[in-house]
Computed example of a mutant assay.
Amino acid sequence: MPPDPAAPARRPFPAAAARLCLSCAAATLAAPAAMAAAPAEPAQLSGLATLLLGTVRGKPTGMTGVTRLTSGDADRELRQACQELKRIGPVDLDDTTRFDGCVTRPGKVVEFQLKVSGVDASRDGTREYMATAKPILVRGICRNPDVPVLGKLGVTLLYHYVAGRQSLVLLDIPPDQCLRK
């Protein structure tokens, strides 16, 4: 029987998860056409806020703003950059993933809050699939040349993906993660 055209379109989970990989993985995982379509950085962002947003988009920024982490209070600088990102509002990364902002914790820890649509976190196998996708996602994040430099400066990055109100996966990128061979 053919599908009912009036029924809402449902994406199969693996396709949605593949797009999830593209949204947070480094630019090397995304198609060049998709990267060309990415919106420009908002002009009102500081260099450090632009750098943090670039790590979420998988877009190297040339380490713009990194000097704010090498002098003064790095935790305060990271907190201010996250506040800037919150002010610009949610940022759509692709058709299924939205960056809702970031929060910081003492010790140069930045947690990116990412919302995924089209994925049912309560569906059998979803969490298991995400657990198997973690190494692929981490590898993609580490391919962004800005991420290992942040690690050398002692910054821990956490990528927290949620679907609805349920946690899907938390990627923990400690400072030495992307320096490993």
Results as ranks from 00 to 15, higher is better:
104 T>I: 12
117 S>H: 08
49 A>Q: 01
62 G>D: 05
107 G>E: 08
118 G>P: 02
30 A>L: 14
101 G>M: 01
30 A>K: 15
172 D>Y: 11
91 V>K: 06
34 A>Q: 15
70 T>S: 14
4 D>A: 02
29 L>I: 12
95 D>W: 13
106 P>A: 15
121 A>N: 05
43 A>S: 04
66 V>H: 13
150 L>E: 03
157 L>D: 13
75 D>V: 04
107 G>V: 10
56 V>M: 03
49 A>F: 00
29 L>V: 14
143 R>M: 06
79 R>L: 11
130 M>V: 08
122 S>H: 12
41 E>Q: 13
125 G>P: 02
139 R>G: 13
17 A>K: 05
78 L>K: 09
31 A>L: 15
91 V>A: 08
148 P>A: 01
22 L>P: 08
46 S>Y: 02
38 A>H: 11
15 A>V: 10
152 K>W: 11
32 P>W: 10
106 P>D: 14
119 V>K: 06
150 L>G: 02
138 V>M: 06
68 R>G: 07
161 Y>R: 09
25 A>P: 04
119 V>A: 06
148 P>L: 01
172 D>H: 14
174 P>F: 01
84 E>K: 03
59 K>C: 11
38 A>T: 13
34 A>G: 14
72 G>W: 00
140 G>K: 03
47 G>N: 08
166 Q>T: 11
111 E>K: 00
61 T>I: 08
93 L>E: 07
149 V>D: 06
10 R>M: 12
154 G>H: 09
78 L>V: 08
131 A>Y: 05
18 A>Q: 10
124 D>Y: 00
135 P>A: 03
163 A>Q: 02
165 R>N: 15
99 F>N: 07
57 R>M: 12
129 Y>C: 00
20 L>V: 15
7 A>V: 08
142 C>Y: 02
156 T>M: 12
162 V>L: 10
134 K>S: 14
126 T>W: 04
92 D>Q: 15
142 C>H: 04
97 T>G: 10
87 R>V: 04
40 A>F: 09
10 R>T: 13
5 P>S: 01
25 A>M: 05
67 T>P: 06
93 L>G: 08
147 V>M: 07
53 L>D: 11
112 F>P: 06
45 L>G: 02
89 G>R: 04
33 A>M: 10
34 A>K: 13
